[in-house]
Design a protein around this nucleic acid. Structure first.
Lengths: 233, 233
DNA sequence: AATGACGTTTGGTACGACCATATACTGTTG
DNA sequence: CAACAGTATATGGTCGTACCAAACGTCATT
């Protein structure tokens, strides 16, 4: 009824991918094969492939066969990312997104404080130690900083959380990863991480949340004054 | 350099849309016009349009000109939704997503308890009253239920929050909106909402969070036993 | 067995054609 | 003059063919 046969093909290939008929990581059949399989012209097949690529069900390099991608939380974040990155061209958009991150981590540290297991605490401590060891190397410090926060996203075991973390990191990277760094600032950040860790260790969710919020708000203020100094808030 | 001229056209149109050169809500220029503008064949133009549609920058009904859509938090959620709905075919996926929602609302009620203004409280009270008034009408009750929770997402003023709420509602609807309802259950849910509201009114974040978690976990348990009774958790 | 030349497959692009429908235009009619 | 019906045109959807260049597979040579 609604005129686009490409849509139904898109849907069917999508279904095949989720159903596992098209194996993840394998290349899609050749366009000319698909056009025989679906009895459609190459135009339509290519249109379906384009749509699936944009939707994140295929990864296609220019001259190669598209690779089948099983959808997971990570690809969902990536699909959203195509739009989200356009919302981040001003401080307002960046701050809105950053607030979401802060919101998220506030619960994560609270839950860590109340429910983290011994192994979780150890992973957190390890990440903290790595962070401390990298204070004098700003590039490595950024990586260990991200890694420390990532541990918080892994404690619950919900596979969506690490994917969400990856999204935050990627989307906020234009500002955070390119921020001027100094050993002094690294050290301050390490102390903030330590305060969070210790509050978690003391099983004090309120203190942990407070330490986290202080840390993230200071970080935002630094980014704001660095990149968005002129904009009206 | 990498072989696809459709990609650069996609990017350029995307840029035109965010830059406002293509007005939101207006139809895209005709394909044959674009092919002259970009000096490309219709094949390429159509491929770009397909990609932009899948990315959420255009809304195209079958026989009409595509409508330009400025990206916002809502379209970002929608882009993610195309993938997310495939993750919700088992209780595991639904629960993972539901957990994210719970996480989100836990902070929202805490913040409401500590920082909600008089007008926020009034909107919350109005929603609660609507909810109570609809106890005997299960269909309306579901709507007022959703509306009550939505108020929580509007208090901070962050435009991303209502969009996220809309995403949760849409993605979880297959289970929640089709749950068997009764006046008894509606009443129980209303009492839960009332408890949340009162804790917020008393400026007690811990109580508000507890009331919310109790409410949402009971709701999940009911959904789980209704739709996923056989699955192993 | 490693290597390099060669033909084949395949994705990227273009052109032209046809259909069906939405839209704009036009002439008729009340 | 306005409402309407009929017609012409614009436009999206689909198809087929053709060509190019890069990737791939094959096979003979070393």
């Amino acid at each position: 009824m609604s005129g686009r046969s490409a849509d139904s093909i898109t849907l069917d290939i999508e279904r095949s991918i989720v159903a596992g008929e098209l194996e993840e990581g394998r290349p899609l059949p050749a366009e000319r094969a698909l056009m025989e399989q679906y009895g459609a012209s190459r135009t339509v097949i290519r249109e379906a492939i384009t749509a699936l690529t944009a939707k994140g069900f295929l990864k296609s390099r220019p001259r190669y066969r598209p690779i089948v991608c099983r959808p997971d939380a990570s690809s969902a974040m990536q699909a959203a990312g195509g739009v989200i990155k356009h919302l981040l061209d001003n401080s307002r958009g960046v701050h809105d997104l950053y607030q979401v991150r802060v919101l998220f981590e506030r619960v994560l540290v609270r839950d860590a404080a109340t429910g983290a297991g011994k192994d979780d605490l150890k992973r957190l401590k390890d990440a903290l130690d790595d962070n401390q060891a990298a204070i004098c190397d700003s590039e490595r410090f950024y990586a260990t900083d991200v890694a420390f926060h990532r541990v918080l996203y892994t404690i619950s075991g919900n596979p969506a959380y690490p994917a969400i973390h990856a999204g935050f990191v990627e989307w906020l990277a234009p500002q955070w990863s390119r921020m001027p760094r100094s050993e002094q600032r690294n050290h301050d950040n390490f102390l903030a991480h330590q305060a969070i860790y210790e509050a978690i260790l003391m099983r004090d969710p309120d203190a942990a949340e407070r330490a986290l919020v202080d840390h993230l708000e200071a970080s935002w203020e630094f980014v704001r004054s660095t990149f968005f100094a002129g904009e009206n808030e």
